[in-house]
Amino acid sequence: DWEDIVRFLRKLFELGEEVVIGDWHNHHREEIKRLIEWLEKHF
């Protein structure tokens, strides 16, 4: 279910905002944000 995936990604992203998950999070933050925005537009 796409909504569950979007919710999971958003939760992960919000957690990442508070607890910076090292370089991985910083590197992928923009991609995650773009992916969430893309999914919201399409689903």
Rank of each mutant, 00 (worst) to 15 (best):
D1I: 13
D1Q: 08
D1M: 12
D1K: 08
D1W: 15
D1N: 10
D1P: 13
D1G: 12
D1T: 05
D1L: 15
W2D: 01
W2Y: 03
W2R: 02
W2T: 01
W2F: 03
E3H: 05
E3V: 09
E3K: 09
E3Q: 10
E3W: 13
E3C: 12
E3F: 11
E3A: 08
E3G: 09
E3P: 04
E3L: 08
D4G: 10
D4H: 13
D4P: 12
D4E: 06
D4W: 15
D4R: 11
D4C: 15
D4S: 15
D4N: 11
D4M: 13
I5T: 02
I5Y: 03
I5D: 00
I5M: 07
I5E: 00
I5L: 09
I5R: 00
V6F: 14
V6I: 13
V6R: 06
V6S: 02
V6K: 07
V6M: 07
V6Y: 12
R7F: 15
R7H: 05
R7V: 03
R7N: 11
R7A: 09
R7P: 01
R7G: 06
R7L: 03
R7S: 06
R7E: 13
R7K: 13
F8Q: 04
F8W: 12
F8R: 02
F8Y: 06
F8I: 10
F8K: 02
F8T: 04
F8P: 00
F8N: 02
F8A: 07
F8H: 06
L9C: 02
L9I: 08
L9V: 05
L9Y: 02
L9P: 00
L9D: 00
L9M: 01
L9F: 07
L9A: 01
R10G: 03
R10M: 13
R10S: 10
R10Q: 14
R10D: 04
R10A: 10
R10Y: 13
R10K: 12
R10T: 10
R10I: 10
K11G: 05
K11T: 08
K11W: 15
K11S: 09
K11H: 05
K11V: 08
K11F: 15
K11E: 07
K11D: 09
K11P: 02
K11R: 12
K11N: 05
L12T: 01
L12M: 02
L12N: 00
L12Y: 05
L12R: 00
L12E: 00
L12H: 02
L12I: 08
L12F: 06
L12W: 07
F13E: 01
F13G: 01
F13H: 02
F13Y: 10
F13W: 11
F13N: 01
F13S: 01
F13L: 13
F13M: 06
F13P: 00
F13V: 10
E14K: 05
E14D: 05
E14A: 10
E14M: 12
E14R: 10
E14I: 03
E14C: 11
E14W: 07
E14L: 08
E14T: 03
E14G: 12
E14Y: 06
L15G: 02
L15W: 05
L15D: 02
L15T: 03
L15P: 02
L15V: 09
L15Q: 04
L15E: 02
G16E: 03
G16K: 09
G16I: 15
G16A: 14
G16S: 11
G16Y: 15
G16R: 06
G16T: 12
G16L: 15
G16Q: 06
E17K: 14
E17W: 14
E17T: 14
E17Y: 15
E17Q: 11
E17F: 15
E17N: 13
E17C: 04
E17D: 06
E17L: 15
E17M: 12
E17P: 11
E18F: 09
E18G: 12
E18H: 14
E18I: 12
E18D: 10
E18A: 14
E18L: 14
E18M: 14
E18P: 07
V19D: 06
V19Y: 02
V19P: 06
V19R: 03
V19K: 05
V19G: 14
V19M: 10
V19S: 10
V19W: 06
V19E: 06
V19H: 10
V19N: 05
V19T: 11
V20L: 10
V20F: 15
V20S: 07
V20R: 03
V20W: 12
V20H: 09
V20P: 08
I21H: 14
I21A: 10
I21Y: 03
I21T: 09
I21F: 13
I21M: 12
I21N: 11
I21Q: 10
I21G: 11
G22T: 07
G22E: 08
G22D: 09
G22H: 07
G22Q: 05
G22Y: 02
G22V: 07
G22W: 04
G22L: 05
G22I: 12
G22C: 11
D23L: 07
D23C: 14
D23R: 01
D23T: 02
D23E: 12
D23G: 10
D23W: 09
D23N: 08
D23V: 05
D23S: 04
D23F: 13
W24K: 10
W24I: 08
W24D: 09
W24N: 10
W24L: 08
W24T: 09
W24F: 09
H25C: 15
H25S: 03
H25I: 14
H25P: 12
H25L: 15
H25D: 09
H25K: 08
H25Y: 14
H25Q: 10
H25A: 10
H25V: 09
H25F: 14
N26L: 04
N26G: 06
N26Q: 09
N26V: 06
N26F: 08
N26M: 07
N26K: 14
N26H: 12
H27N: 13
H27T: 08
H27I: 12
H27M: 13
H27Y: 08
H27R: 04
H27G: 05
H27D: 09
H27F: 14
H27L: 11
H27S: 10
H27E: 09
H28N: 05
H28Q: 07
H28T: 11
H28S: 05
H28K: 05
H28P: 09
H28G: 07
H28I: 15
R29L: 14
R29E: 06
R29N: 06
R29D: 04
R29T: 08
R29F: 10
E30C: 06
E30V: 04
E30M: 13
E30N: 04
E30T: 10
E30G: 04
E30L: 07
E30S: 03
E30Q: 12
E30R: 06
E31D: 10
E31P: 03
E31R: 06
E31V: 13
E31N: 09
E31Y: 15
E31T: 12
I32T: 02
I32Y: 05
I32E: 00
I32R: 01
I32D: 00
I32P: 00
I32V: 06
I32N: 00
I32C: 13
I32K: 00
I32M: 03
I32A: 02
K33R: 11
K33M: 11
K33L: 06
K33N: 06
K33G: 04
K33S: 04
K33A: 06
R34L: 13
R34E: 10
R34N: 11
R34P: 02
R34Q: 13
R34V: 14
R34M: 14
R34Y: 10
R34C: 06
L35A: 05
L35S: 01
L35Y: 03
L35F: 10
L35M: 12
L35C: 09
L35Q: 00
L35E: 00
L35T: 02
L35R: 01
L35G: 00
L35W: 05
L35P: 00
I36D: 01
I36P: 00
I36Q: 02
I36E: 01
I36F: 13
I36K: 02
I36W: 09
I36H: 04
I36V: 13
I36S: 01
E37D: 04
E37R: 07
E37W: 12
W38V: 03
W38H: 02
W38T: 02
W38F: 08
W38I: 03
W38Y: 04
W38S: 03
W38M: 04
W38L: 05
W38E: 04
L39H: 01
L39V: 08
L39F: 07
L39G: 01
L39K: 00
L39Q: 00
L39Y: 07
L39S: 00
L39R: 00
L39E: 00
E40G: 06
E40I: 15
E40T: 13
E40A: 14
E40F: 15
E40N: 12
E40R: 10
E40D: 09
E40V: 15
K41P: 02
K41M: 08
K41S: 12
K41H: 14
K41Q: 05
K41F: 11
H42D: 02
H42I: 11
H42G: 03
H42R: 06
H42F: 13
H42Y: 14
H42A: 06
H42S: 06
F43K: 04
F43I: 13
F43W: 13
F43Y: 06
F43Q: 04
F43E: 02
F43T: 05
F43A: 11
F43C: 13
